[in-house]
Design a protein around this nucleic acid. Sequence first.
DNA 1: GCGATGATCGTACGTACGTCAAAATAGTCC
DNA 2: GGACTATTTTGACGTACGTACGATCATCGC
Lengths: 192, 192
Amino acid sequence: MSQREDLLEGAKKCLVEKGYSRTTARDIAAASGAHLASIGYHFGSKDNLMNTAVLEAASEWGDTFEAAVRTAEARNPHDRARALFEALFGTIPDRRPMLLASVQAVAQAQFDPDIRERLDAGYAQARLSMAAIVLGVPEEEVDEHTAASLGSVVYSLVSGYVLQAVIDPGSLPTVDQALAGLRTLAPEPGGN
Amino acid sequence: MSQREDLLEGAKKCLVEKGYSRTTARDIAAASGAHLASIGYHFGSKDNLMNTAVLEAASEWGDTFEAAVRTAEARNPHDRARALFEALFGTIPDRRPMLLASVQAVAQAQFDPDIRERLDAGYAQARLSMAAIVLGVPEEEVDEHTAASLGSVVYSLVSGYVLQAVIDPGSLPTVDQALAGLRTLAPEPGGN
DNA sequence: GCGATGATCGTACGTACGTCAAAATAGTCC
DNA sequence: GGACTATTTTGACGTACGTACGATCATCGC
């Protein structure tokens, strides 16, 4: 494995273990087995390496979750909603490190236009995917309005639960509880 | 105003403008007009000051939002859900700096048990409040199960939308879009 | 007025940081 | 195998960081 890849792994590891702000260039070198100066050679700067790591971790989580939820086939939107929650609550504990990194990505995004842009693009894509999953249609058939309404609601739920789980894994409800909550909250089908 | 307060203000300002990781003790001193050495005197360490600032900012946002949503009286849960979204989407743009700070609080919480504990307590309280608001009852009447189901759903939506808004303020849907999304997602009242 | 206590200030110390330049090594193409 | 590039290694440089220490200053009871 090249030092470039080693460094990225190491940076992700540090991201999870020490956090973005407390990770030093020497930490990454130590964690990856690569040499300190390789950071500059392969990534230009330590900041750049960390940002790359943070973004990769965030997109890995997105892919993992989407794959998990797509395996659960269901007939109607409501059943698919259940499948989605099951995938969400099932995936979160396994992927905690990735989630920690994702949260830090959002935090750092405010101060790095590049991170922010790419995270933004990821979010837009996620809204589309979420809507498509719940509706059970290909992404191409999801129009803008649907992505903005259904997609954004679903994605908010997902990222909101991720946040809660990151703060306190024990605070996650059961799937049934989540669905019951939704039922209480949702406006009646006829109303508006 | 005492330097202690000045430092806290300055730290919050830096938190928003430069981010947790890029803020130095000298930045805080400059932003607050206080003296560099006062950080040690009043807060023991720069880290401690930053953590205090991050937590204060996070709780200010919670208070602001709860106050906003409580002003909107409505008769049934669904109307209150609407009022809640209106308060949420109305409050978010004004309080963006606070939200940025909150996101950073979550990111830092992983590496500071004190932040984490207090944030956790805030989340638990928020779930209770959210459930009480939607149900239109005093917090004392909300039981654990309701907080875990309804409260956690609502809080997920809230924090999820905050996250989206922080990344891209333009991505927020309208209240009607959000409600329409909820309607699609929610399981039928009779079901499951 | 005067000591005592708490707050502010000036400064400097030690250090751990990110980065760079150049040497050393590995890899590649003819 | 020799020229050339890509990568790895070594070592160190300059600096900006957090913090500690002592001095100065305000406040207030007496």
